[in-house]
Simulated scan of single mutants.
Amino acid sequence: MSFLEDVFISTLNMSITASYVAIAVMIARLLLKKAPKVFSYALWSVVLFRLIFPFSFSSSFSLLGLIQPVQTDASSTQYIMQDIGKMEVPTVNTGVDSVNAAINASLPTAIPVASVNPMQVWITLGTLIWLIGIAVLLISAMTSYLRLKKQISMVTFVTSNI
């Protein structure tokens, strides 16, 4: 399950980055109220790109450069370390001190006598909930698709695709 847990943590890191980008887009939209809608769509496409693709581009002009992440590797920014489940005192660095304090205070520390690190248990549970959510969404999408396909199968053409 280690691979799935790594994918889950990577997804969390991408989601944190996407939330920062979404906040920047919302602020930019306030400034561009009178601009054509195509600019709004272009701004939201940046958020979509960040949520879909597991890699990012770095630039010296990046707004995310204002936030100091824990680690930046070649493919993505890590606010939550990949080995957080193995740390004695797990920490998260989102770049916002008040959020860091609240999250880090609630994270369980490793118990030396215990056979399992409590943080590893939480990561495993989060991964399972994430996978169950994916399965529920896929089943829901397939059900909706099959229901729509059944309704469309009884449609008759009147004239020229009407």
Rank of each mutant, 00 (worst) to 15 (best):
F61Y: 12
M119Y: 06
A18C: 08
S45E: 12
S19A: 14
Y41W: 03
I103L: 11
A18M: 08
Q71E: 14
I123T: 01
P69C: 02
G133L: 07
I132R: 09
K37V: 06
I80F: 13
A28I: 02
S75K: 07
T77Y: 08
S40Q: 12
S115W: 05
A22L: 15
W44R: 04
Q120E: 13
V47N: 05
D97Y: 03
K86H: 11
A114N: 09
L66D: 01
P112T: 12
V96F: 15
E88T: 06
L30G: 12
A24C: 06
N13I: 11
W122D: 03
I16G: 01
G95N: 05
A110E: 10
F61M: 07
P90Q: 04
I123F: 00
V113F: 15
F49N: 13
Q71Y: 15
A24H: 11
L107Q: 07
P69L: 03
V46C: 03
N93H: 12
S15A: 10
Q120G: 12
V38P: 00
F49A: 13
A101H: 09
A102C: 02
L66K: 05
F49L: 10
V25C: 14
S75T: 12
L66Q: 05
A35T: 15
K33M: 09
M81I: 09
T91V: 14
S58D: 12
N104H: 11
G85P: 02
V116Y: 02
F57C: 00
W122Q: 08
S62K: 00
W122C: 02
S56E: 13
L31Y: 14
M81C: 01
A28F: 02
D83Y: 06
F49I: 08
I80W: 12
G95V: 07
N100W: 11
L125M: 06
I23H: 12
M81W: 02
